[in-house]
Amino acid sequence: MPLPPPLPDAISPHSNLMRWLGYRPPPLRPLDMGELAARSSLPLRARRLADALGSGGHRSRRKGASIEFADYRDYQMGDDLRRVDWRLFARTDRLHIRETHEETPLRIVLLLDVSPSMAYASRPGLLSKLDYARMVLGAVSLIARRQRDAVGVALLSDEVVKWLPPSSAPLRRQAVWSLLDTPVAGAGTALSASLDQLLNLVPRRCLFVLASDFYEESTRLASAVRRLRYERHDLLALHIADPAEVDFNFQDPSVFFDIETGAQLALDPSAAAREYRAKFNAHRTAVHDDLKAHGFDHLFMHTDTIPVDALRAHLAARANRGLKSP
């Protein structure tokens, strides 16, 4: 076996050893839904998604002891001399106090809609809306853990099925993860009622990340949203839909069976498609407008597209607005 060439003296062995051995870092693979769907377990999916998203830190509006510079102010009597910027004193001959941003933990509550309609996947190989929601919420929880934020979770159906208050304790995080990994199925959809019920349980201001298909009357949903705003919570609504729900590109006359209610309807889909799309889009617009009117964010996601770009753009937009992000 031929030996590698001798190591040049001018090259540091630590910085160039890998290159010298011929190592090349693998190319970055773009993330696709096929890869995500092929990963069998939620942790793997969520971790891959979180890796693709990257971790975004968030700042507090308060200033305190930290390493991130915020501003200078004049020295006042009683200030801790350890916070005086002596280098600036050497240049200006005046005493200034160096102020930094205080990093505060964020309380994030992951809300997962576990109603039967979320179990829908229009074709094999496509994630169901529930799996898609679990994956996205799992990724959010991973990012929150990296930022040492407090994470809680609630499973919503026609009521609050499960509830874990936000906490940054490692055991709580394990519990959150376990709950996302094995969710309990719900009986129906009553988002407004379950949100009302949940708000009675939440003690302090939180960032709710709600993943649902929002099959709820928009007027009833509005009352819950108003209460969220009134109690000064923040909400990121992840509106998840299957491509077949959006396009409704069925061709042959069939009997349509409602997953949630069990109702059946025989119809010619090509004849009903136009009206369906109009109603679906109207509902989605109503949800969007309602949330936006109360200052909340609404992200519409298809289960056949990767949520990375939408989430990253949303997190960047929140950061620009100076809001906390998970």
Binding site: M118, Y120, A244, V255, F257, I259, Y276
Partner: peptide
């Protein structure tokens, strides 16, 4: 009509 299709958004149909 030859088949039954499960669908979650029957409320719009």
């Amino acid at each position: 009509v030859v088949r039954t299709v499960p669908f979650p958004a029957l409320r719009f149909l």
